[in-house]
């Protein structure tokens, strides 16, 4: 359960491109054809190993609906990695990438690793966005690109793990300041937690309220 690092991910993209399905595939290794609309943000977590180190990925799966766009911006902060997802069978999801990318760049730290994912690669017959277009977009904006299928789990693991590897590499290069949690990276607990806190004791937010 203990981990060396905790990376915060955020999955963004138009509604219905399969963000929650990607998360489910990655965390539970299952595919749910019909998925409820995400309210605000949902969470997922999974442990991976990179370079012999246990890394916990904490994934914030945001709602793609335009109405939630305002609040999802609040969650960008403190993310080490972002999965920008579009649907290869829907051209408009690809066209919205620029606005999503602007949001991500604006509300996150500049070092955040962004992975461009063209999902639903299993639906090749209905493809509207060529893989080359995705690659070109990624190349243009300095993103990592990958086509995945949450249904067949193709490249799902790779998408998450490659992002983690890139983050890890940046940590090794000293790009990320791991002591600054605003970068979305937390060091794992060095030792077992102290005695359980009482409910009243868990009041770190007391002073954080407005007014």
């Amino acid at each position: 359960m203990s981990y060396a690092y905790l990376f915060k991910y955020i999955i963004i993209g138009d509604t219905g491109v399969g963000k929650s399905c990607l998360l489910l595939q990655f965390t539970d290794k299952r595919f749910q054809p019909v998925h409820d609309l995400t309210i605000g943000v949902e969470f997922g977590a999974r442990m991976i190993t990179i370079d012999g180190k246990q890394i916990k990925l904490q994934i914030w799966d945001t709602a793609g609906q335009e109405s939630f766009r305002s609040i999802t911006r609040s969650y960008y902060r403190g993310a080490a990695g972002a999965l920008l997802v579009y649907d290869i069978t829907r051209r408009d999801t690809f066209n919205h990438l620029t606005s999503w990318l602007e949001d991500a760049r604006q509300h996150s730290n500049s070092n955040m690793v962004i992975m461009l994912i063209g999902n639903k690669s299993d639906l090749e017959a209905r493809r509207e966005v060529k893989k080359e277009e995705g690659e070109a977009f990624a190349r243009e904006h300095g993103l990592i690109f990958m086509e995945t299928s949450a249904k067949t789990a193709a490249n799902v693991e790779e998408a998450f793990i490659d992002t983690a590897k890139e983050i890890y590499r940046k940590i090794q290069e000293g790009v990320f300041d791991i002591n600054n949690e605003a970068n979305g990276i937390k060091l794992g607990p060095q030792h077992s937690p102290s005695s359980p806190n009482s409910p009243g004791g868990a009041a770190p937010m007391t002073g954080s309220g407005c007014c």
Partner: peptide
């Protein structure tokens, strides 16, 4: 350990998210 159990039940993330919203 309450913190551990609270985190395990996603309470911490939600609290974090709530905090982020509140700050915003």
């Amino acid at each position: 350990n309450f913190v551990y159990l609270f985190e395990k039940n996603e309470g911490m993330v939600h609290l974090e998210g709530l905090e982020m919203l509140s700050e915003s």
